[in-house]
Design a binder for these strands. Structure first.
Lengths: 195, 195
DNA sequence: GACCCTATACTCGGCACCGGATATACGGGA
DNA sequence: TCCCGTATATCCGGTGCCGAGTATAGGGTC
């Protein structure tokens, strides 16, 4: 069976190992240091599962089993040729082909008619504020990273995220106004259902 | 143990049952008809798992077991008081609190430096085109829905998605230009690494 | 040197999820 | 009336994911 590109954590593993061999725990540390876990969900259980899967498909090899003192054994892995090919091809796919994802907010807003308009308005305002805070936090982080001398390419994904968040905030602002003023299509019916 | 709000399919089930009692297969049909599966991932295996879980937590009850002819038994479910409360509260949470999600594209673009700039440029162009097609498809769908007399509130989530997709397209366009012209921060280094 | 907190490194059981398999009924054509 | 494709309705086995658990080492404090 061919390798399944489900968990992006496997992508992170391949990327890290293409720098130098590491053992799983070190991968986790490195991801943390580089703020990579902001972008790719990391948890230890999945990490070891994913590493084992990559190993089984011969995309990485167990290059050494170290044992310092009486600590648990550390298996150090290295990427194979097939692993590098997989990394690059997966990357191409991720960038070129939009994946069908299911953002939770779309699910929520699609059913907003079930709540009274006044409640909906308040909730949307709450989200708008929260998104605003995320944006300022991101701006601070970018400032810090740029101050450390990191080039834009090193945090390009944060740049993208900011653009998307700004669009979301703008949409929320529009929807809040349209709800308050009752100009959203179907408003009268909506209000009637909640008397 | 309290009910875990993981799979949004459970939300859809609660919403459907708050209209009228149904059996699982009918829920699936209804979701299809209403284009709800665009927004909430539906598959039969998960549907039955989710319904059973809701039942176990007494958010829905098995109101009747019909048997028409010699067909398989159909268990018809209805929502309970606790179920309605759960539905509303979950909805509030989904709308008001941005969830931490991990879009695949962010993972991909964060590692774009591993690919040669020329390749990256081409891939980004491909995505831009794909996003453009999604936008026109959405516009056509909206036209159709509005033509059927459905109010804006009935497809508000598509409105939101269009806003986000437009922002993504704009960002892709910017990034493509910055890559082509070499003005993205760290470009020289990027090119050097791929000679 | 006894204590405890944190860091290191991995393991494991449970469970949600998925996709394909199963089984029957119905309707229409030859 | 026989056949077969489609619709109805659910089930089930495998797998990947998760978070809590385990165990040792190192370092600081009194």
């Amino acid at each position: 069976m061919t390798f399944k590109r489900t968990n992006p954590l496997a992508l992170a593993v391949l990327a890290l190992l293409s720098e130098r061999p590491m053992h799983p725990y070190e991968m986790a540390q490195t991801m943390r240091e580089r703020h990579q876990e902001e972008v790719i969900k990391l948890n230890y259980g999945s990490l070891y599962t994913v590493v084992e899967s990559l190993h089984k498909h011969e995309l990485i090899t167990a290059s050494a089993v170290q044992k310092a003192g009486n600590r648990p054994e550390r298996t150090v892995y290295a990427v194979t040729g097939a692993g590098t090919a997989e990394l690059h091809d997966w990357l191409r796919e991720l960038i070129a082909v939009p994946a069908k994802e299911y953002p939770r907010f779309e699910a929520g807003i699609s059913l907003v008619g079930l709540l009274p308009p006044a409640d909906a308005l308040q909730l949307v305002h709450q989200r708008e504020a929260a998104v605003g805070e995320q944006l300022t936090a991101l701006a601070v982080l970018l400032e810090k990273l740029a101050g450390m001398g990191l080039p834009q390419l090193a945090w390009i994904e944060l740049d993208y995220r900011m653009a998307v968040l700004r669009a979301e905030r703008a949409w929320l602002s529009w929807f809040a106004t349209a709800t308050r003023e009752g100009t959203v299509g179907g408003y009268d019916d909506w209000e009637d259902r909640h008397r």
